[in-house]
Computed example of a mutant assay.
Amino acid sequence: MRLRTKHGITALLAATVLLAGQAAGVGTATAAAPCDYPAQQLDLTNWKVTLPTGSGTSPTEIEQPSLKTFAAKPWFQVNSKCTGIQFRAAVNGVTTSGSGYPRSELREMTDGGSEKASWSATSGTHTMVFREAFNHLPEDKSHLVGAQIHDGDDDVTVFRLEGTSLYITKGDDTHHKLVTSNYKLNTVFEGKFVVSGGQIKVYYNGVLQTTIAHTSSGNYFKAGAYTQANCSNSSPCDTTNYGQTTLYKLQVTHS
């Protein structure tokens, strides 16, 4: 068919594009909006999440591939501005058997999320860079962990906020390095852990804060909201009393 006018050519092209789109299924699928699931905000392929829900000492855990299309308001969801992932853990939340504190927290995995990450501090270089803000602290004991390195036994070093004081910890020394005594809630910062040659270098907004000797194996990264309060030391004992963070960036490399 010949079309002699400019409008006719335009109409033919439009019809061709429409038919091609229909053939490819364009406009027919019901894809999730980019604000529906946390995995749309950040690459969570090699992570699982532990939530402050469940029963007894068995909190809810979501692994891949379910994590790709999972959200749990208000514990683990895209934030209201659709710019990051909100993590919330109330003081009355379910805890793991190894802790008295609730968490909404990512745990590093490997092999597409099928295996738990476990690496040595003396072999290779292991880096996690994250951008995060502390949004809300529990009452009475206003302590909250936002990111950490854990080994086979315990936490090795974490970013821990106590009121307005932000610390980098070293084992049981919760006040190892004071980063700032004037942290304001909702302030976004960038943290970085670099583990190599039996040392952990910890950075805050690009500035080295401390170097920690560490030679253990079985290490992995964690990030989210690990509330350091529960119903024994914080009131009210309900879901209105919680710790919350928002994660805007999360990148892990191993070399």
Rank of each mutant, 00 (worst) to 15 (best):
T96H: 11
M109H: 01
G163D: 15
T157Q: 14
S123V: 12
Y101W: 05
S97G: 12
T125K: 14
V145E: 02
D153W: 11
Q64N: 13
D140F: 11
A23P: 02
Q148I: 05
R131E: 12
E63P: 00
P52Y: 03
Y167L: 05
A90K: 14
V156E: 03
Q86S: 04
Q86I: 03
S118Y: 02
G152A: 10
D111Q: 07
G124F: 07
Q148E: 13
T57V: 12
G146Y: 08
P138K: 07
G56P: 05
S55N: 12
P59H: 06
P52F: 03
V78W: 01
T164G: 09
A29G: 01
I149K: 06
V129K: 14
G113A: 05
F87W: 04
T83C: 15
Y101H: 10
D155Q: 01
S80M: 11
V78Y: 00
T30S: 13
G124I: 10
T50L: 08
V78E: 02
A133E: 00
S104G: 08
H150W: 10
N135L: 14
S80H: 05
F134T: 07
G56D: 11
P102S: 09
T45K: 10
Q22S: 03
F76M: 02
Y37F: 12
T60N: 12
T164L: 12
E162F: 09
E63A: 09
S66H: 00
G54W: 03
S165Y: 10
Q77A: 03
E105R: 06
T83A: 13
P138Q: 07
L161T: 08
R107H: 14
H126D: 15
S118V: 08
T28V: 15
F134G: 02
P38H: 04
E105M: 01
E162H: 13
A90Q: 10
K116Y: 09
T95M: 07
L161I: 06
T127Y: 11
R160M: 06
S142I: 04
F76Q: 00
P52H: 04
P59F: 02
T110P: 00
I149G: 00
W119S: 05
T164A: 15
A121C: 04
A39T: 08
T169V: 02
N92F: 06
N92T: 04
V145K: 02
E61Q: 10
